[in-house]
Write a protein that binds this DNA or RNA. Structure first.
Lengths: 264, 264
DNA sequence: AACAGCTATGTGGTCTGACCATTCAGAGCT
DNA sequence: AGCTCTGAATGGTCAGACCACATAGCTGTT
């Protein structure tokens, strides 16, 4: 933790620039977070390790247990921790690595707050999936290709309904992202997909006759799949962008953010 | 996401693969989060509004104040809330919209946990900034162009040191992202840049003679700037990718994540 | 009346201490 | 050996108190 006494500043400069205000972090839980983050950054704590028990951490850092718990909650909300009750080796608060869940919640929240228009999200999705498709064209192995093929098969099933189709659709894009070999991009792709899940499904249901749309989307998947198998990165990327733009254009209801508040 | 061991896996079948485990939400703070999120998603709460006081919320939801506070911390860590002490109108817990800070912390944390190799981050950065450059070529207004020009000027100053150069460098890329008119992409770009800030600076300092590198990078910025002013999206994107790849290649030290744990 | 200063009040921030619920390791019994 | 049961460790929750802080509004002076 840095001392917040660094008001120093350059004497000669006349307020040189902004620089984030060096807010005095007086809040206890932030100290705890800093302490934990320091351990993580220095490598003394890594995935799988367990934190000291809350009570112990509290006494070590000289804060109350509530403060420790608040810090743990914040880290947990970032997908960096997980708490398990009980005794023994598998209990306690352990360092984890589940950023995509955290990213999903974060994106969903801010989309809900209308900070991120759906159009912006779509643009990001295109950027990500172009990259994924390109990388997948080079890196995909047989198993990955099989996963993609399987989703297309599911999309082709005669009895497929909207939910199942959407699932298969999602799985196809996630499979590409994972095949690309870039965890970060894959996680972000998953997060975006999950953030928009409700709205996509909503749009699908507002589509009276969807069999034609379904077939078109499935065929586009086939083409993308083909390009990836051919190792044609450029074509895969272009087709992916085209596919996404087409889908968005065909599902205008997706842009309606406000729905009912009934969570599933 | 966690290990993708949870995905498919069973080739034979159905496995609706619902993803979301039916977690028994026994934890109190999760209920509180759901309650707040519901208000947000339904639009009853939006940016600027204030939440009921903690004590009141606690009694309304029939949980302890500690539970409420933990929920608030989690939302706060996502940049969706901010708490202020005191009385009167500007106090209390208010809904905010600061996703970029949250994204920064999240990325930094997971990069620290080695979940996201620097190479993956770079790939994402390229995807984002290609998009930004492309969009900026179409959307940039005079003010935005002026901001970019100013950063190039700062990079050209005779007395510029590594810190100042890095600041200007960052500002240039952020200016492009903002000029693109896509908040989400801009925030992510900022977050990535901030996440890597320490390591970039570290790499810069390990570079004995850096004047040549500095000039090259600055010239690349000039070219990108020129392409954007010309409205040449394709060229701007290509130059940006080239620029980033060049910088990464020239700063190999950036890939060393582990440092010493001694605070500066 | 206008202003300055003080106080009341409401808010988050923190701490303490207790108790509950869950889980596992190991003692003890069959 | 195998099973059962108990103890202990751990997170989950709660209640109540007090502190720090910032505004709103009252009070007193000019």
């Amino acid at each position: 933790m840095q001392d917040h006494s660094d008001t120093v500043g350059s004497p000669s400069a006349r307020t040189p620039d902004l620089s984030w205000a060096p807010i005095p972090k007086s809040r206890a839980h932030e100290l705890v977070i800093e302490a934990i983050e320091e351990q993580v950054m220095s490598g003394r704590l890594s995935v799988g390790d367990t934190l000291p028990p809350e009570r112990e951490l509290a006494s070590m850092l000289q804060v109350s247990r509530a403060g420790v718990r608040e810090a743990i909650r914040m880290l947990e909300s970032h997908g960096a921790l997980e708490s398990r009750v009980g005794a023994g080796s598998s209990s306690g608060t352990i360092i984890t690595a589940m950023p995509s869940i955290a990213l999903t919640r974060l994106l969903r929240l801010h989309i809900g707050l209308s900070n991120f228009p759906v159009g912006d999200v779509v643009e990001l999705r295109i950027a990500l999936e172009r990259t994924s498709a390109g990388l997948a064209s080079k890196n995909a192995d047989d198993a990955a290709r099989e996963r993609m093929r399987e989703t297309i098969e599911r999309m082709s099933a005669a009895e497929v309904d909207r939910e199942a189709f959407n699932e298969a659709d999602t799985d196809f894009h996630v499979a590409i992202a994972e095949a690309a070999g870039n965890r970060l991009v894959a996680d972000l792709t998953t997060a975006i997909r999950n953030s928009l899940r409700t709205q996509i499904l909503h749009a699908f249901h507002h589509r009276e006759q969807w069999t034609q749309l379904r077939d078109t989307l499935r065929d586009q998947h086939r083409e993308i799949f083909s390009a990836i198998c051919d190792g044609d990165a450029e074509r895969a990327a272009a087709l992916t962008e085209e596919h996404i733009r087409y889908a968005v254009a065909e599902l205008p209801e997706m842009k309606l953010p406000r729905d009912d508040g009934s969570g599933a």
